[in-house]
Amino acid sequence: MDSKQIADMVIAEIRETVPELADQPISPEDSMAELGVDSIERSEVILSTMEKLGLKIPMVQLHGPKNIGELAELLFNKSAG
């Protein structure tokens, strides 16, 4: 699993969590906030992705990424480390 695949997982989770975005094009350069994903939904997207990756770390360690690609990169590094 590379960070590109993780970004695809995150995007799939976004579409799952916010049905309004099901048909909207979403790229790794997009930020969830700008797509209209609210803070509760953002945390759900991250938690679901962590679950799928089997990643068990404090959520605060995943704070900071500015867009989906950066989040995927961070998730990838945490999974590898």
């Binding site: 803070s39 953002r42 945390s43 404090p58 959520m59 605060v60 995943l62 704070h63």
Partner: peptide, 12 residues
């Protein structure tokens, strides 16, 4: 404050 970080800390 930072809404995302606050929510993450709350959940943790």
């Amino acid at each position: 404050g930072d809404a995302d970080l606050s929510l993450m800390a709350y959940l943790d």
